[in-house]
Amino acid sequence: MTELLQMALTGFNLGLMYALIAIGLTLIFGVMRIIQYAHGEMFMLGAFTLYYWNAEFGLNYWAGVGVSAVVIFCFGAILQIVLFRPLHGKNILYSLAVSLGLVLIISSSGQILFGTTVKGIPSAVTGGVLLGGTYLSYERMVISAVSAALIIALWFFLRRTTTGLAIRAVAEDPDTSALQGVKTRRIHWIAFGLGSAMAAIAGCMMGTLLSIVPTMGFLATIKAFMIVIMGGLGSVFGALIGGLILGMIDSVVTTTISGDVALILSFVVIFLILVFRPSGLFGQDWE
C-alpha cells in the first residue's frame, strides 16, 4: 500500500514537471506551427541561469527562478524575431532544421561556456516526513505546487486576458485574427517567449531536484515531445494529461518491472494513441 502511494506520488510529481515543459512546446506549436526542437535547450539555459544566480553569486533562490524566466523569455523572443520570423509561412521543415541547428549550437556552446562538469543547484526547501513508509519530500511538494500553480495561471492567462485571448485567436485562425486587428507578429514572439519561459522554470525545478549539465536539454525535448504527441499538439490540457500519463508510466512500470520496459511501453502507448486518435488525445486536426 505504502509502495503504491509512493509510486503514485512520484509519478504525479514527475508528471507535473513534464507537463510544465510540454505546455511551453505545445503553446509554441499551436501559435506558430513550428516544431521547436530546441525547447529542451531553453530548459537547460533556464536551469543554468538559476545556477549562476543562486549557487555562484549566492542570491535569493526564488528571485532567481523569476530572473531565469525573464531572461529566457527575452532570449526566446529574440530567437523568434531573428531566426523564426523569416521562416514564417514557409515549409515546416525549415524551422525544424533551424531549431536542430540551435540544439547543436546551444548545447555545445553550453559545454564550452559552463564547462562539462555536472553541477547542482542547492535546494531552497529541504527535509520531509516519513509517513508509514511513504516519504513526502517538502521539496517535491513545493515543486508540484509551483508546477500546478503555473499551469493554472497559464490557463487563466489564455482565457481571461486580452493577450491570452489574442494568442488563442492566432492559434485558431491567424488570418481572421489579423483581420480583426490582432498583431500576429507581436503574438508570435510573446508566445515563443512565454513557452520558453515555462521550460526555463521547469528547468529550474528539475535542475534543483536533480543535477544540471549543458547536454541535459535533449532529454527534456524528448519527454516534451512524447507528452505533446500523446496529448495532442496545441492543447494545454492535453499536455497536462500526457505529462501525468508519462510520469505514471515512468514511476509505476519502473518500480514494478524495469526501466527499459517503461521506456518501450511509453513509446508503444504513444504509437497506439496516434493510431486510434490520429491527432492525439485532445488535439485538433492540423492541416
Binding site: M206, I222, D250, T254
Partner: peptide
C-alpha cells in the same frame, strides 16, 4: 537495477532497489 539514460527521476529505481 538498470536505469535508462533518458531517465530523469531516480525515485522509482531506488525504491525498487532498497526494497
Amino acid at each position: 537495477e538498470y536505469y535508462n539514460w533518458e531517465d530523469t527521476d531516480f525515485y522509482p529505481i531506488v525504491a525498487k532497489t532498497i526494497r
